[in-house]
């Protein structure tokens, strides 16, 4: 078992094998994402009942919460991939880290905008400088900073090293975002789904939320593999395997 996993990692560590395997997986990931998301949207927007307290406005939860979770998860994965690239100098890990940043930034942007659109009818304001909202905004700037740093350095290895350090340092913001609603007084509500004892959300509302959450994970996997393939091809453009691809295309 351990040997199989080790061999698989060795195989995926080679840009050529990664390109071939990722090319086969991506259509499946996108198909699963589409299926889960469409089912989640149907159950969330059509089947789920109106909330007794927030009325219909709570339906923003089906995109706000999954995108907010994804914004944090992607940052952690980006930092892990960047660390692997930094220590073992694996090009595929560098490409995964680099490819994750714009996708993570997109999710963070959506979480912030949908949060604002949910906040207006519920709190009476588009924005407040409280801990949860401010730390999520800092996360967006961390993604932008990572992308800007990569774009500013021409040499790929140096760019990967410098941006990896920023990604690792930025991880400190993730527990701050997560626990901000417990550590400080905030307008933002506390944990609903991830409460250990019992989630305070009805099952008819929880199922579509979980479907959307899983769907977005498949979206990330498909998008990050597609971007990483492009980045590796660009970085390896002078190697024989890329020349073969160009010749056979």
């Amino acid at each position: 078992m351990f040997k199989t996993i080790k061999n698989w990692f060795h195989l995926m560590g080679s840009p050529r094998s990664f390109d071939r395997i990722a090319g086969k997986i991506i259509p499946w990931l996108i198909a699963i994402f589409t299926l889960l998301t469409l089912t989640g949207l149907y159950l969330g927007l059509v089947v789920a009942p109106t909330d007794y307290q927030q009325g219909e406005s709570y339906r923003i939860i089906y995109i706000h919460v999954p995108t907010a979770w994804m914004s944090m998860l992607i940052y952690v994965l980006m930092a892990i991939a960047a660390t692997v690239g930094l220590i073992w100098r694996i090009k595929v890990a560098d490409a995964i880290a680099s490819a994750s940043a714009p996708i993570g930034a997109a999710f963070t942007f959506i979480a912030l905008v949908t949060g604002s659109l949910w906040g207006k009818p519920m709190w009476g304001t588009w924005w407040v400088w409280d801990a949860r909202l401010t730390s999520e905004l800092i996360l967006l700037f961390l993604y932008f900073g990572y992308m800007a740093l990569q774009a500013a350095i021409d040499e790929p290895r140096t760019a990967a090293r410098a941006s990896a350090l920023l990604a690792i340092v930025g991880v400190v913001n993730i527990p701050i975002i997560h626990y901000s609603v417990e550590w400080w007084n905030t307008l933002h509500q506390g944990a609903t789904v991830t409460k250990i004892d019992k989630p305070s959300i009805d099952i008819s509302m929880l199922v579509p939320l979980l479907l959307m959450t899983f769907g977005f994970k498949f979206y990330y996997a498909g998008a990050v593999l597609a971007r990483a393939r492009g980045l590796l091809l660009e970085r390896e453009q002078n190697t024989n395997w890329v020349k073969e691809i160009i010749a056979n295309d």
Partner: peptide, 28 residues
């Protein structure tokens, strides 16, 4: 509020996915 949220989500995620999927083809 609801439909603007969903529209922004579809636009941003759609754009990001299409850009990601076309990256390799454009580069080749």
């Amino acid at each position: 509020y609801i439909w603007t949220s969903y529209a922004i989500c579809i636009l941003v995620m759609g754009y990001t996915l299409v850009r990601s999927l076309r990256m390799r083809t454009t580069l080749i």
